[in-house]
Amino acid sequence: MTQQPSPAQPPRLAAWLVDLFASREQAESILGDLSEEFSDLASRSGIANARRWYRLQSAKTIAHLAGAAFHATPPSLAVALFLGFLLSWFSGALPAQLIIALLRTQRPYSSRHYEAYVWLLAYGIPIVSITQSLLIGCVVALLARGREMVAAIALSLLRAAPLAWLLFIFFGRTPLARPVIPFLGPFLFSRALDLIGIVVGGVIVRKARSASASRLAAV
């Protein structure tokens, strides 16, 4: 008895990303259409071509969905972005304050204490800062119902813009400042992690909402 070959599957990551950016109703029909065209293309011109087509179509689809969400500019999206920006602006110093307050309550009496003290000093602020960004991403995504990813990415870009602009002005116009770049590395890395944290917060809320809607639909 010969085993039937399993049908070709579309690229999972691309499908996952489309699902993130589309509303639940959109995701059902868009992913279905993409799968139908993928199967058709795979049988006509091979799986490699079909996969390439699927990835390109997914990227274009995500761009259109994000663009449409901005174009519609529902009040919830604007409010979510405004509140998210305020929240991240005013709580910016909170991680450092928290860790310093915690360190003040501790005294490195023994060598074990000392190691923990140094570890907290070195990694405490970045960890709390990423957690804070994750929570801000969650809040923004909760407020921007149906447009979670667009809101989280927009807030991330809003927060990155002033820093990118300053770096461009500073390093673009003063070539002598270029040797300073390596020293900015850790700072830029921690900023990048913060921005990723906001987007991950959006992903968490989007996926949780999607799962809860699917459960409700199944009942």
């Binding site: 259409d33 993409l34 274009k60 689809t61 995500i62 969905l65």
Partner: peptide, 10 residues
């Protein structure tokens, strides 16, 4: 693209 079609249809 499919995305352009759906954005317009929506």
């Amino acid at each position: 693209s499919i995305g352009a079609i759906y954005a317009t249809l929506d």
